[in-house]
Amino acid sequence: MVTVIEASGLTKQFGNTTAVDNVTLSVPQGALFGLLGPNGSGKTTMIKMLTGQIRPTTGMATVLGLDVVNDPVGVRKLVGIIPEQETPPSFLSAMEYLAFVGAVRKIPDIEEKAAWWFSFLEFEDKRDVLCKDLSRGTRQKLMFAQAFLHKPVLALIDEPLINFDPIMQRKVKGYLADYVKSGGTIFISTHILEIAEEICSGFAILHNGKLLYSGAISELSGKKQHLSEFFFSQVQI
């Protein structure tokens, strides 16, 4: 089985705080993998390290075969990323932002592709509005579109559905499922267990920076256990 993410002994310290503590993890190609954990457990730091935005204090990680420390730009070229806080540039309109991403990533026919995303995520009426004037939900739609604009083989998403209404959540979950079926891999971080149980094939639990468990969702159904029960038994709350 081909692995797309391989982390070994990954640790990140901010001063005296250890945000991620010696995490070893692998994610196979074609998985919809959920990194679960309470707030402040180190999920976002983990994604930042895997996308080369911050350097691990110790340990190493490869994403699609590229070392995240030595070639962070190479990693970001191949993957799609949706940050937890949606931060498209303030003074570009939604259309301009997608054109900007298209130009940086050298994506052909950007107008057509952007038009498809505006239509699919139902925000065509906001295409010419400045990002700073968009609602949080619309900003997240825009960030979702930019992450998949270049059809990456792997997408890393931090809290994917948090600002979407139930209708949009269903639509996006459907998109992610189809994406994985067509050979893509998704790595999501979330603290909403219901979402993870519904869409993920594999998962890992992070708590206080430590990896408590990593395995397949199917293992839980074999034990007739819900993800939430299993999660609470692991984090012992």
């Binding site: 309109s93 301009e96 130009a103 010419d128 509005v129």
Partner: peptide, 26 residues
């Protein structure tokens, strides 16, 4: 903020005009 004021796409034509730069869209 939160106004619905609309802006035409300036980025694409400006990127073309600045094509002599190493990273025109930026």
């Amino acid at each position: 903020s939160g106004t619905s004021k609309r802006f035409i796409n300036l980025l694409t034509p400006l990127t073309r005009k600045l094509s002599f730069f190493p990273t025109p869209p930026l």
